[in-house]
């Protein structure tokens, strides 16, 4: 019983109740700046994709899809809140989730370029969803065993949600790929459009390498993610697009594409104009 209580209490607590004492007491391998950086990457991926998916609300092809994409965006936003709160606590500079989401500028965001891509048509969004959910499912599945109890707790919760997101993407890719000539053409086009942005998901670097058992090696996620994507494409009668002529990367270092500034302007301006606004 006492063991249970301890493990429950090692979980994430909300911004209103910063668990600074746990951050101090946690025996954590690696230095804190690496942990902050890694947690920001996870949180920013979820936050920025949530913002993009939210743009579909009232514009999706069916009412049910409005609801589905909003629900998926909400799950991602919840994950982002947990992760950004924790990044702020680990950093110890007094920044909470709102400070990190609304008061950082473009160069300080650590998300991959894939998630900031404009939505394109519905097929392109589903191509992005198929790749990102396949990656994120494998990531969270392994992160459940992280040496960091807070990251492990966030991942154990989120992996169950992402299983639904991944299935949602797969169902649509199957339907579009195995649908009409037009839907197949669009789906194939969507896959080609996101292809240059896939590699960055699996880039290892000094941050992930330096964190040992706290982080998951992104390179190890490539094979299982590709296997899942290839399986879906096979069943959908779609082809894996040819190797892209160029590969885009840089998001993990804060080097974003032109669209990121517009995304942030929309996401941040209300809070910056009316700090703490809520409804």
């Amino acid at each position: 019983m006492s063991g249970d209580t301890t493990s429950e209490r090692s979980g994430w607590r909300s911004a209103a109740e910063p668990s600074v004492e746990r951050v101090r007491s946690g025996a954590r391998p690696g230095d804190v700046s690496g942990l902050v950086e890694y947690t920001l990457r996870l949180g920013d991926d979820a936050l920025i994709l949530s913002q993009r998916l939210g743009e579909w609300i009232t514009r999706a092809p069916q009412l049910e899809e409005d609801v589905a994409l909003a629900n998926i965006a909400l799950d991602l936003l919840g994950q982002a809140r947990s992760l950004l709160t924790y990044a702020g606590e680990a950093e110890g500079a007094g920044r909470d989730e709102d400070a990190l989401a609304y008061w950082r500028d473009e160069r300080d965001f650590r998300n991959v370029l894939l998630v900031e891509r404009p939505n394109g048509d519905f097929a392109e969004t589903m191509a992005r969803q198929l790749w990102f959910t396949s990656y994120q499912y494998e990531l969270y599945d392994r992160l459940r065993a992280s040496a960091d109890p807070t990251l492990a707790a966030v991942a154990a919760k989120a992996v169950k949600e992402v299983a639904y997101h991944r299935d949602h993407a797969a169902q649509w890719v199957l339907r579009l790929g195995d649908g009409t000539d037009e839907s197949r053409r669009r789906m194939q086009g969507g896959l080609a459009a996101v292809a240059p942005y896939v590699d960055e998901l699996f880039d290892p670097d000094g941050v992930t390498g330096g964190l040992g058992a706290v982080a998951v090696d992104p390179a190890a996620l490539r094979e299982p993610s590709e296997r899942h994507v290839d399986g879906v494409l096979d069943r959908a009668g779609l082809e894996r697009p040819p190797e892209p002529a160029h590969v885009a990367r840089g998001g993990r270092r804060g080097l974003h594409t032109e669209v990121m500034g517009y995304l942030l302007a929309e996401m941040q301006h209300l809070h910056r104009s009316h700090e703490g606004a809520s409804w």
């Binding site: 429950e8 209490r9 979980g11 994430w12 607590r13 707790a153 154990a156």
Partner: peptide, 10 residues
């Protein structure tokens, strides 16, 4: 005080 805990997941 109300604490939000994530682990074990619901």
């Amino acid at each position: 005080t109300v604490h939000v805990v994530l682990s074990p997941p619901w």
